[in-house]
């Protein structure tokens, strides 16, 4: 039942791309109006999947790479829909759907088995720390999407309004991601002090989270002090997201440490 809902959520997310593809191929722009609704349905299915998994496993579905990544996609789609509505950014729907489908595809390759929690994860801090970090990664993924679109040449000098809107969106999503990343690292440190007796142990996951935080700290300051924006800021956001990906995937698979159970 659990994985069936996941597969349906995956299919509905892919249907968003089909809607936009059909609107383009058959030259019926009005069909695109269905896109946000279909993506909303995909998000509700992802929500149902996470809720079912929580109920079946008896613990918050954030205990391994598969569960946390589904949660990250859920956050990405949710924030994408929120930003689209709040800031009127329609391009977000197909872009978020594309990244969401790719992400769910990667999830399907991971170990989907449910397992009881290891002692280190049996804490309410699991929900607080991992959920906030994953939501932060979702927001930084939105910043990455906006940056990729800027670097692909959309909103150049001929379209200053679009360029400004994309850059503004990049700033807002990066700001949200930076705020959540900061809070997530802090929550992790407080949990570490409760579980291991030290708020900072220079474990590879901790260290790479701090490195990622340094990169985005530099980005936030460069925007303010040197007015970095547009393509320059987009390159920095892409670089920052590479650090996010390494912290999330690379550290889990290439390094061992106190977070080794996160695979």
């Amino acid at each position: 039942m659990n994985m069936t809902v996941f597969n349906v959520a995956f299919a509905v997310s892919a249907a968003v791309l089909a809607v936009y593809g059909a609107a383009y191929l058959f030259a019926v722009p009005a069909w695109r109006r269905a896109g946000p609704w279909v993506l909303g349905a995909a998000w509700l299915l992802q929500t149902a999947f996470l809720a079912l998994r929580w109920k079946e496993s008896g613990h918050v579905p954030l205990s391994n790479q598969f569960e946390s990544m589904v949660a990250m996609i859920w956050g990405l789609v949710g924030l994408g829909l929120w930003f689209r509505r709040r800031e009127n950014q329609d391009w977000l729907v197909p872009a978020v759907a594309a990244l969401g489908v790719a992400g769910l595809g990667v999830c399907a390759l991971l170990d989907t088995a449910m397992a009881p929690l290891v002692p280190a994860l049996q804490s309410n801090w699991l929900l607080l720390h991992v959920a906030v970090i994953m939501l932060g990664y979702s927001a930084l993924a939105l910043s990455f999407i906006a940056s990729a679109i800027i670097l692909a040449g959309f909103g150049g000098r001929r379209q200053p309004d679009i360029a400004l809107a994309l850059d503004r969106f990049n700033e807002r999503s990066m700001g949200l991601g930076y705020m959540l990343l900061t809070a997530g690292i802090v929550l992790g440190a407080v949990w570490a002090n409760e579980a291991w007796g030290s708020y900072w142990s220079w474990d590879p996951k901790e260290t790479w989270s701090l490195i990622t935080w340094f990169v985005y700290t530099a980005a936030v300051h460069l925007r303010r002090t040197h007015r970095w924006q547009g393509r320059r800021m987009a390159w920095l956001a892409v670089a920052g997201f590479v650090f996010v990906l390494f912290t999330y995937f690379g550290v889990n698979y290439l390094m061992s440490g106190l977070h080794s159970y996160a695979k």
């Binding site: 220079w202 590879p204 260290t207 790479w208 701090l210 490195i211 340094f214 990169v215 700290t217 530099a218 300051h221 460069l222 550290v251 390094m255």
Partner: peptide
């Protein structure tokens, strides 16, 4: 700050 952050990043990466 823009000198310190890359230096801290390089040393932190080396430590991992």
């Amino acid at each position: 700050l823009y000198w310190l952050l890359p230096a801290l990043i390089v040393m932190s990466v080396a430590g991992t």
